[in-house]
Amino acid sequence: MKKLLLCLLGLLSPLSAADTVPDDLVIIQKPIIFDEKRKALTLQYMQERYGMVQKEPTIEPRMVVVHWTVIPTFEKTFEVFNPPELPAARDGIRAGGDLNVSSQFVIDRDGTIYQLMPENTMARHTIGLNYTAIGIENIADGDSLPMTEAQLEANTKLISYLANKYPIEYVLGHSEYHRFRDTSWWKETDANYFTEKNDPDIAFMNRLRSQLSSLSLKPLP
């Protein structure tokens, strides 16, 4: 009954027969714009970056990539992710296409989980892996805004839920995505399109994976 009520209130993703949502997991729906323009840009990205030609911008989630935003609030993060097209201020990554960056989830500093996109719709958050990776952004910067205990707990609950719903094999930080470059998982067509990342810190990721030890996760390459 609690799950159904939260769903009707828009606090949980729409339920299906396959979903098993823990009673203590609340996901607030806050969808970004996903109009025909964003759909077309996503399909273009998938074709140009990964050589994937599809009618719908869907993915088969096999990994979760954890990030921090550097942006200090959820509200500002939402404003950045909401437009379909990459703004002029992000010219440094325009070589990868005009699709704006985004993620499926954002976790605020108090552990509140927001869902911006369907889990199986592609978001641009990690070079080379977007076609199979669910992105979780955290409101943090590793400096004046370190990752919080509430975010650790929220990431643990959310990823546990996702791993029960999809065949998730890896949980990695954005700073670790380079470890997939020489594997069959890496689909980026331009060998020179790559950026170094430091989010989140490895200590946090090790703590998170320790919390997820009951899952059948694989060690990173």
Results as ranks from 00 to 15, higher is better:
Tyr114Ser: 00
Glu56Gln: 15
Ala140Asp: 01
Gln54Pro: 12
Ile93Met: 00
Gly128Leu: 04
Met63Ser: 08
Pro83Asn: 07
Pro118Trp: 14
Gly96Arg: 14
Lys37Cys: 03
His125Gln: 11
Glu60Arg: 11
Lys55Arg: 12
Gly135Thr: 10
Leu129Ala: 05
Thr121Cys: 14
Thr69Val: 06
Pro72Ile: 02
Ile93Leu: 00
Ala133Phe: 01
Gly135Ile: 11
Ala133Cys: 02
Asn138Phe: 05
Met52Ser: 10
Phe105His: 12
Val64Asn: 08
Asp108Ser: 12
Lys76Ser: 12
Met46Gly: 12
Ile107Gln: 01
Gln47Trp: 13
Met46Cys: 11
Gly51Val: 05
Glu85Gly: 03
Asn138Cys: 14
Asp91Arg: 03
Asp110Met: 01
Pro72Gln: 02
Ile71Gly: 00
Asp91Pro: 00
Thr42Pro: 00
Ile71Leu: 00
Glu137Arg: 10
Thr58Val: 14
Pro57Ile: 10
Leu145Pro: 06
Leu43Gln: 06
Met63Lys: 07
Leu129Asp: 06
Pro84Val: 07
Thr121Ser: 13
Thr132His: 09
Glu85Met: 02
Lys76Gln: 14
Glu60His: 13
Thr126Cys: 08
Ala95Arg: 15
Val53Gly: 09
Phe74His: 13
Ile139Lys: 04
Tyr50Cys: 09
Ile136Pro: 07
Asp108Met: 03
Ser103Glu: 11
Arg38Glu: 04
Asp110Thr: 03
Gln44Gly: 12
Asn138Val: 04
Thr73Leu: 05
Val70Trp: 01
Ile127Glu: 10
Leu145Cys: 05
Asn120Gly: 01
Gln44Pro: 08
Ile134Glu: 10
Gly111Gln: 03
Thr112Lys: 00
Arg62Asp: 08
Ile113Tyr: 15
Asn130Tyr: 04
Gln115Asn: 15
Lys55Glu: 15
Met46Lys: 12
Tyr114Arg: 00
Pro83Leu: 10
Pro84Arg: 07
Phe105Met: 13
Tyr50Gln: 11
Glu85Pro: 04
Ala140Phe: 00
Phe78Pro: 08
Phe105Gly: 04
Ile127Lys: 09
Gln115Arg: 15
Val80Gly: 00
Thr132Cys: 13
Gln47Ala: 15
Phe78Gly: 03
Gly97Met: 00
Leu129Lys: 08
Glu79Arg: 11
Asn82Gln: 03
Leu99Arg: 08
Phe74Ala: 09
Thr126Lys: 03
Ser103His: 09
Met117Lys: 13
Val70Pro: 02
Ser103Lys: 08
Tyr45Cys: 10
Glu75Trp: 12
His125Lys: 07
Arg109Leu: 06
Ala88Trp: 01
Lys37Gln: 07
Gln47Tyr: 14
Pro57Gln: 10
Gln104Phe: 14
Thr77Pro: 13
Arg49Thr: 05
Tyr131Pro: 02
Arg90Gln: 04
Val53Leu: 13
Arg49Met: 00
Arg94Lys: 15
His67Gln: 06
Pro57Thr: 10
Arg62Asn: 09
Gly92Ala: 08
Asp91Ser: 08
Leu129Trp: 08
Leu43Lys: 02
His67Thr: 04
Tyr50Trp: 13
Gln44Tyr: 09
Leu86Asn: 13
Glu75Ser: 09
Ala89Asp: 05
Ser144Ala: 06
Val66Cys: 02
Pro72Ala: 05
Asp98Gly: 10
Gln104Gly: 11
Glu75Gly: 02
Met52Tyr: 11
Glu137Ile: 05
Asn82Phe: 02
